[in-house]
């Protein structure tokens, strides 16, 4: 889904607040509890990491931005347990004596079918590919900032479960994941540094073959960027 979580390339969040010296994994007891509870219960509840991530993505954007990191985790765990009828929000409300936040948006899966027909790799190292312009309503790990952009396959990472279907329990659909290299200028325009690159691991269904560049473009690129 084109959610608030898909933040790569956004502006306006300001400087990095680096005020954390040393190793401080939790900033309060309840954060530690949420972390441990999540790690214990997701699989036991018949869920998985993809569905958990999607439950975070389904939080209303205003709350997503206002809530702390582990408050979002707690929302997501509640969503998954409530969706399965394991623990309802009403049960939790009754214990605390106070109503919780509004539930997350319902998960929506399109009838869009995955394309990978078998587990044979469709791309090879060095292939030029375009990140497909997909906008699924459900879970996806193809961020907006790469869609429609052209990159180069740098490595075949092997075969993995497809998150877009797995998050919705619509099949594991094993397929290749590739490390794809994009020029920063391809992603963010001519003001980006000419040398900079972004590498991102993308499932085969997120990619399509791109036409080869004209020979002159290849030549000048090789000159500028010898490897």
């Amino acid at each position: 889904m084109n959610g608030i979580h898909d933040m790569g390339g956004m502006d306006g969040f300001g400087e990095i607040d680096r005020g954390e010296a040393g190793y401080t994994p939790f900033h309060s007891d309840w954060e530690a509890r949420v972390f441990a509870l999540t790690n214990s219960v997701i699989a036991r509840a018949g869920s998985n990491a993809d569905e958990f991530r999607h439950a975070i993505e389904r939080i209303h954007p205003a709350r997503y931005l206002a809530a702390s990191y582990y408050a979002r985790w707690l929302d997501a765990v509640e969503t998954i347990l409530a969706d399965r009828g394991i623990v309802t929000r009403a049960e939790i409300d009754a214990r605390t004596g106070h109503p919780g936040v509004a539930p997350a948006a319902a998960a929506r899966v399109e009838s869009r079918r995955h394309r990978a027909k078998d587990e044979r790799a469709k791309f090879r190292t060095g292939d030029r590919v375009r990140a497909r312009n997909i906008n699924p309503a459900g879970h996806t790990r193809s961020p907006r900032y790469v869609r429609g952009k052209i990159g180069v396959i740098r490595r075949d990472r092997g075969i993995y479960v497809f998150p877009d279907t797995n998050a919705h329990h619509a099949g594991e659909v094993h397929q290749h994941v590739y490390s794809v290299e994009f020029r920063a200028r391809e992603l963010f325009g001519e003001t980006a540094n000419a040398h900079d690159r972004v590498l991102i691991d993308l499932w085969e269904d997120y990619l399509e073959q791109a036409a080869n560049p004209p020979p002159s473009a290849i030549k000048s690129k090789r000159k500028r960027n010898p490897r």
Binding site: G8, R141, S142, P143, R157, Y160, V177, S179, A184, N193, H195, D196, R197, V198, L199, I200, D201, L202, W203
Partner: peptide, 10 residues
Amino acid sequence: VRVWDSSAEQ
């Protein structure tokens, strides 16, 4: 500058 966006299992 080579940025790695860990979007998959790596």
